[in-house]
Simulated scan of single mutants.
Amino acid sequence: MPVPAHLIVVGTSAGGMPALVQLVTTLPATLNAAVLIVQHFAPDSDGQHLVNRLARHTDLPCHLPADGDALETGHLYLAPPDRHLLVKDGPQPYLLVTKGPRENNFRPAIDALFRSAAVVYGSAVVGVVLTGMLHDGTAGLEFIKRCGGVAVVQDPYEAEYPSMPETALHNVDVDYVVSLAMMGPLLEEITRPGVPEQNAEIPEDLKLEAAIAERVVGTTEEVMRIAHPVPLTCPDCGGNLFEVDQGKLLRFRCHTGHAFTADALLRNTQHSLEEALWVAVRMMEERKNLLSSMAVRGEGPYSVQQEERIEEIKKHINRLREFLLNGGTNTSAAPAERED
């Protein structure tokens, strides 16, 4: 089996399947690279159905890979639902399909694939970020650039959901910003045989992060080699968070393997804050109801005191509701992923 000379890694989220169909239509069967794709979709999605859909629009053999599958030139691999897709070095590079900790609240995570590809293939990796909400893929493009690879972003003006391309452009020194119609020819040109590659040393911190993801879990000692503890809590497991010291993008990890960009962590904490405030509203409503029942049975000064406490609680409830209903925590949900 021919070993791929290049890897093209693609990440997309909301609006991703129509964009992927358009992209793979432009990729030739003679492509001098393997194509690995992470599309965010629900854990119970039919991954094989999505692979079959892509296969109808390209001459590249399309696969829903299993753990240990070898990488082959001119083949396309889609990350299975609820599994990370990683690249592992060996006599012939192969794929790891794992149920490791989520990164940026996603599994599969774009950043996890991009990092592992960059560590194994270095400057022979092309990272592509397409339409999508939020920020997964931005740190991954930075990993690829740090290893000497090429960063490509879909033109945000044509993306159905421009958040992911725009965030990448704001935080990473992107090499190409192109439309989907032009992306296939560009990828073929970048990966054609004989194109000189820039040799870049693979940073030790990325090697360690890739190893942690491969083993599914790390240790505090390992994380301390690339990050320092901060007074923040991992929203996924409740463990202590560490701020990663390397790279331009502000990122956080916990020793169990969860990872977040600052934007993803902020969004997660906003969601938790909103939940906590609604619990507070519910508890105060219950306290108000209990005091009301007690006041009905009371007489004299005691009843008056209960009424005063009830009025005070009502004010607190109204303030909390006003804060929540006016969007004070900015927790608007992303649109549901679509397969069409």
Rank of each mutant, 00 (worst) to 15 (best):
Y121G: 12
G122T: 08
G122C: 10
A124S: 14
V125A: 08
V125C: 11
V125D: 15
V126M: 01
V126G: 04
V126H: 00
V128H: 06
L130I: 10
T131A: 06
M133S: 11
M133C: 11
H135Q: 10
D136Q: 12
T138Y: 12
T138F: 12
A139F: 01
G140L: 05
E142V: 03
F143E: 09
F143S: 10
K145E: 15
C147D: 14
C147F: 05
G148Q: 09
G148V: 05
V150K: 00
A151R: 01
V152C: 13
V152H: 04
V152W: 01
V153W: 01
Q154N: 07
Q154W: 02
Q154H: 03
Q154I: 05
Q154T: 08
A159Q: 08
E160N: 04
E160Y: 02
Y161I: 11
M164C: 05
M164T: 03
P165I: 01
P165M: 04
P165C: 02
E166T: 09
A168I: 05
L169I: 09
H170K: 11
V172G: 10
D173E: 13
D173R: 00
D173P: 05
V174P: 12
V174W: 12
D175V: 13
D175I: 15
Y176C: 04
Y176H: 13
Y176K: 00
V177T: 15
V177K: 09
V178Y: 03
V178A: 07
S179G: 15
S179R: 12
A181Q: 03
A181H: 06
A181R: 02
A181Y: 00
G184V: 03
P185A: 15
P185K: 15
L186S: 12
L187Q: 07
E189Y: 14
R192M: 15
R192S: 15
R192C: 13
G194T: 07
G194F: 11
